[in-house]
């Protein structure tokens, strides 16, 4: 805690308590593994407290943390450690989700079949983050575009295709 001399204990705990669910949710929605999600969450907060940034508002702070979380998740997902490590709890979830025709059949074979998270995890990785930010964080297309670095049209396309796949997986659902 000596390294937190510039950060008071109260502010450290407050920030951790307030934004850990947001950061952890982004990581878990993408990685679907609790240990990996915790690692990514720690990295994000280490970057946050290590950076000398003055935030204008809580929205600015939240946007910074979300963007940092998205980047950290993308980096973690590209790492060889994540690609080559076996995950016992989610090994079925990370099964092949290649073709559209196979999506429904794959979902039927999943242990978590019937849950929304299991359906979201059948989506391609680039769709999962968009769905999570849109439905869980209640972010707009423009905000998602700013956070992910994609164009708004691209975000809209990803969201539309994700909805189509979710309809195939979940049947009649209000999206």
């Amino acid at each position: 805690m000596e390294a937190l001399s510039l950060v008071t204990r109260e502010s450290f705990d407050a920030v951790m308590r307030m934004y850990t669910p947001t950061v952890y949710g982004i990581a878990w929605s993408r990685l679907s593994n609790r240990a990996d999600a915790e690692d990514v969450t720690q990295d994000v907060f280490v970057r946050y407290f290590g950076a000398d940034i003055t935030f204008e508002s809580e929205e600015h702070r939240k946007a910074w943390l979300i963007k940092c979380a998205v980047n950290a998740v993308n980096s973690y997902a590209r790492s060889s450690h994540f690609k080559h490590s076996a995950r016992f709890e989610d090994i079925d979830t990370l099964a092949d989700i290649a073709a559209d025709d196979d999506v429904a059949r794959n979902a039927e074979n999943k242990e978590l079949h019937g849950t929304l998270h299991a359906a979201v995890m059948q989506l391609p990785p680039k769709f999962r983050t968009v769905v999570h930010l849109f439905y869980f964080e209640d972010m707009s297309i423009a905000q998602i575009s700013e956070v992910t670095g994609e164009r708004p049209a691209t975000v809209k396309t990803h969201l539309s295709r994700a909805r189509d796949r979710l309809r195939k997986l979940l049947g009649e659902v209000e999206l």
């Binding site: 000596e2 937190l4 280490v46």
Partner: peptide, 8 residues
Amino acid sequence: GVAEKLAA
């Protein structure tokens, strides 16, 4: 974990 990484 965050505190340890910051203290390291």
